[in-house]
Every structure is written in structure tokens, then in C-alpha cells.
Design a protein around this nucleic acid. Sequence first.
DNA 1: ATAGGGTTAG
Length: 746
Amino acid sequence: MASLPTVLVGNTIKLDSEFKKFSPPLHFEKRKYSTKELEFREAVSLITQGNTTLESSSYVPILQECIDSNSLSGVETIHANIIKTGFGQELFLMTFLVNAYAKCGTMESARKVFDNLPQRNVVTWTSLMSGYVHNLRPELAISVFNEMLEAGGYPTNYTLGIILNACSALYDVNLGKQIHGYIVKYDIQYDTSVGNALCSLYSRCHCFDMTIKAFDRIEDKNLISWTTAISACGINGDSAMGLDMFVKMLAEGLEPNEITLTTVLSLCCTMQDLVMGSQVHSLCIKLGYGSDLHITTSIMYLYLKSGCITAAKKLFDKMNFTNLVTWNAMIAGHAEMTNFSENGLSAYFYGIEALRIYQRMNLSGLKPDLYTFSSLLTVCSSLVAMEQGEQIHAQTIKTGFLSDVVVGTALVNMYSKCGSIDRASKAFVEMYRRTLISWTSMITAFVQNGRPQQALDLFEDMRFVGVRPNTVTFVSVLSACSQVGTVDQAMAYYDMMKNVYNIEPVMDHYACLIDMFVRLGQIDEAFEFIKKTDLKPSEFIWSILVAGCRSQGKLELAFYAAEQLLELKPKDSETYFLLLNMYISAEKWKDVSRVRKMMRDEKIDNKLLDWSWISIKNKVYSFKSGDKKHKSDEVARLLEDLIEKARGIGYRVEKNLETVDEEKEETTASTAHHSEKLAVAFGLLNTSNAAEILVVKSTSMCRDSHNFMKIISTLTSRTITIRDSKRLHKFYDGQCSCGDFGHSLV
DNA sequence: ATAGGGTTAG
């Protein structure tokens, strides 16, 4: 966090009447450059020959050319020449030189030129500030601002715009508000550059209302004002409003440029609105931006986000030019699919594809940046690929991108989802800046890893440092409460959410509370709560109730809840398998046949896509039920041996689909195995004695397998982590981190 | 002399 510049605390900005009227700054006249016709190369050759017939203003377009081609050596050559020819006293020229050095990335030289200036005016000061903002040293821009004020200089609207940008770069909305205070006091909110900077600051700091207010106050709204406001709508999650503004902008007669269009396409993208997207695309083509790289990348990303992976790939392969952003979008698009795939198996393939694209990107010679790393970490967390995740962690350290708050948060999330809570919290502690999402991620990490009390403690820390929780934070908090199992505490947080933070409860919050009642065995209270809140339970809530009723032996209610679930998800194979298993456990064979017939009628696959995979030394081994791959004899023998030993200490194979022969409808010997049992056995055989086992499973774990893993963790003295489609299970010493309510259903 | 966009995290 940037410390507050002391000068700003008192009323020390002296704004004179000149400033209020926006007259041009003192000592600065706009020159008409006589060298418009002078060719750049000609000029350079004149300079290098030492033939100095140039007048001082002729240097400006040459310097501009150096800036455009980012040629530091060019700037240095011209600098030397200016000194030689005695133009070093020309303030306007030296100001431009400060700017040129700053734009070419050497603030040391810029500062040196500035320090040697014969005199200073607001333009020279402002150029230096702008240079620091441009070179990612906003805090230095602010101290230069203070220096200027102390020296008696007055800011202009441009100066204030730059300082607001510095605040924005520091995410220091409080300092920005102080500056805003002066802007209000001197009534210059309607100025375009000040207004645009305010919009941009508030947008970046997620103060949406302030953004729109600042926008409304701008007298002459230019394309930048509109683009900033439209983009702010997107950041705020109100893409529809952004599209409305875009239409309004068009109605006002402004023509969008490629940047506005890219922003608008990104709105279509978050709305997954292919129809609107293709309309905007047509407009892009009409305005001549059809082959613009940003536009094409946005269209590609729109396809990706709308699930049209093949179309996106086609476009990608057809593109003549790609840059890092194109590749990042491709990787991010696949990374996102790993989150939204219903089916764990397809998530796995998307994840692998994302890593492949990354390899291809490396081969093409592009260097990854913070966006690449964030997406890759997401992929690793979805794949539960901790080894790859660690490699990417190492790369973020080497490249310096670890200091980015999003990368840091993604790292916390990756370690958490891979079951390594210690590394997750280390990553969190080492972050130098944390956003609400970082805090929420860490709170969620504790919840995911079965440490509810630490989650609640961290939540209080977060409140203590003044970070305001949101809906998502409270889902994790209530989820932690349900694990702790204190009804009063949960209700207190529920009330806090509603009354202190004015957050309306959503289905996930209700689900947490119902989950808590169910865990406490208070099935009646759960149903009562549903009635009291006039709640129409979601699928998820019904599935919690099914599991709860079953474990409480309330079979009638369980069947009722399961039927409700089926009504909400009539095409979902897992629900049918749930019902089947329930009837099999109850040995109601008639109902078993009835459900099987329903499945045939609905054309539901007779086999659940149950896969598990384990990554050992960068190789991934996948298993499906009853699989015979990967040293099957050894794996089978070990598994039989473990089952035998487990039986010795009370394990009984539960009757379910895996263990019941379909034809005879009776329990057979456990020759068929769940995929995760195979993967764990394989892991036990192929890792050293103390190593943790980490397995990913495409569906959710069943109760039988869950019981089995608990016992195996004791028998082998190993920590076994299984990430299923619902949550994380960490088995250690006969216990599971989910508190035995995480396994669900089937 | 100043200003805007796309890809990222719960």
C-alpha cells in the first residue's frame, strides 16, 4: 500500500484562477513544427553529420519518431546533439526530451534532464509525473506531485488526470478521493481529461456508482469517456447496461474505434451472446477493423466462452498474426472449460489441451505473462496436477509475475485444490497485496481442506483489516459454519450478511445452512427451514437432503427427495444411478427394474463415466472401473489384500452398482472396483512409502469407497487425497477432511 | 504535456 503523501493532508493545493479557466499553462506555446516535410532519416543523417542547420523545434518530430520506434539510442544521439548545438536551454525542447526518455523506459535519464533544466513549469513537472506512471512507478509520480506543490507549482487538469492515474495504478482509491475533493472544490469535474481519469480510477477500484457519476458529469464526452464507462459496466458485471450505453453512444453520432469495439465484444463474450456478438462483428468489418488482431482475438474468445471450441480453433489456425493475447485467450478459454464442464472427464481433456497449447506457445518463442500463468494455474488446479503447478509456481518466481495479485490468488487456489493447505496459506501470507478474492480464496481453501475454524478466524481478520465481504465470501463462511456445526453461530453470520452487509441470500447460502442441519442429523429442522424461508430448493439442496436422509435411515424422505431431484434433473445420469443404488441398498429389486426401465426410456447411458487419474513423475495414469491397464495383476492383488485386511477391522463392502451383478441382482465378490480404488492402489505401488497419494475422479465418490479410503489411510499410514467432482477428500489416519458429509449420493 | 481496450483469480 502506498503511504499517504503528507502534503495532501492539509489544504496545500493552490489552484489559481488561471487553472480554473483551463487557459494554457504558462511559458508554453504550441510550436508549429516547420519540419513536417523533413524526412526522419534525412534529419537523423544531418544530426549525425554534425551539420546543425536545424532550428530547435525541428527536433520535436525526430524525437517523436524515436519514441514511436522506441529507440533509446536515437534519443541519446539527439540529446547529445541538442547539447552540442546549444539548444539545451530551450525549455519546451528539454521538456519533450524528458518525455522521450520516459517513453523509452529510462526514468534515470529523464530525471537527470529534468534536474538540469534552467527553469521548471507545470508542463515539465507533469511530463516527469507522466513518465513515472508510464514506467510503473506511480508512487514516484505522487512524490513528484508533492515536490511540485511544495515548490509552489500549480496543477492543471492534465496534472490531476495523471495523478489520478497514479492512484489508479496503486489501487489507492482513498488518495484518489482526496484529489477528487479538490476537483470538486474547484469545480472541474466536467473537464474531459479529469472526468476520464476519474472514471478510469473508480472503474479500476470497482466503485461502479462513482464511475457512472463521474461519467455523467463530463461535459464533452469523447470516445475515451464512453469506452471507459462501457468497460466499467463489464467490470461491474452489468454487461447488458454496457451494451445499452454502446447503443446510446452510436445514437449520439460517435463512431467507435477498434478499442471500443473490442470492449463491446468482451461484453457479448461475458453474456455468451453469439447473436449480438456477430452483429458487432459485422460492424467491425464495416468500419474496416475486420482483420484487426484485437478484434479477431475477441471473436475467438467469444467462440471459446460460448462453448464453440471447434469454431474458435478454426479461427485461431486461420489467423495470420497472433500475439501473446491471442495465445492467452486460447489457453484461458480452455482453462475455463475445465471449470464449467459438468463431466470431470471432459474437464480433464480441456485441461490437457490447454497445457498443449501452452507448449506450442513456448515453441513459437513467446514468453508467458501474468495472464498465461493465471490460466495455467487454474488448469493445474482443475487437473489437480500439483507437480505441474509447482513448476509454474517456480516460473512465476523467476519471471517476477508472482507479485501479481491475480497470479498469487490463483496459486493459493491451485495448492488448495491440490489438497496442500500449508502451501496454499504460505502463498497467501507471502502476497504483498490482497484483494477480496484473495481473502475469499484462502477462506475457501480452509473450508475445502476441512479446517472450518481457521476459515472463520481468517474471515474475522479480513473484516478487521477493512475488506468488505461479498456473496461468495459468505458462501464459504456459512459452509465453514456447517462444518463446525454450531447453529447459533451460523445464524449469526447469516444475519450479519443480511443486516450488516445488505447481501441478499442466494441458493448457495441456503444450501450451506441445510447442509449444517443435515450434518447435525436435524432433518426435520432442515425441512422446517425450507418451509420458513419459502424456499424452492435447488438440485444441490435436494441432493444434500437425499444423502442426509439416507444416512439417518429416513428412507421415505430420502426417496421423496430423490424423486424431487429427478424432477429437476430428468436427464441426469447420476441421479438415476443414485436412485438405483438406493433401491439396491434397500434390496427393492422391483424398483431397481423400474428405474432401469426409465433409464432405457430416457436413453440414459447404462454406464456412468467413472474415471480416475493419478499423476506420477509428470505422467498421468488414468483408470476406469474394472480397468485392466497399468500392471493390473499387481494392482488387483494389492487391492484384494487391502480389502481383506480392511474387512478384518470392520469394513464391509456396501451393496451398490459396482458390486451387484446386473443379471442376478445380487451381491458378488468384489471383483469390480471403483476407478479411484484402482488409482490409489496404483499410487501405493508406484510411490515411496511416505508419499501422499493424490487422485482425481470424474464423478463423486460413493459411500462405500469413502469408507474404504478411510480404513486404507490407517492401514498404510498414508495421506490419500481424492478430488472428486464435488469436493476434496483428504484421508488421514482413518478420518476424512470432509467430515463424512462430502461423499455423496451414488 | 495528458487520457482508452482485449486475455487472469474466489
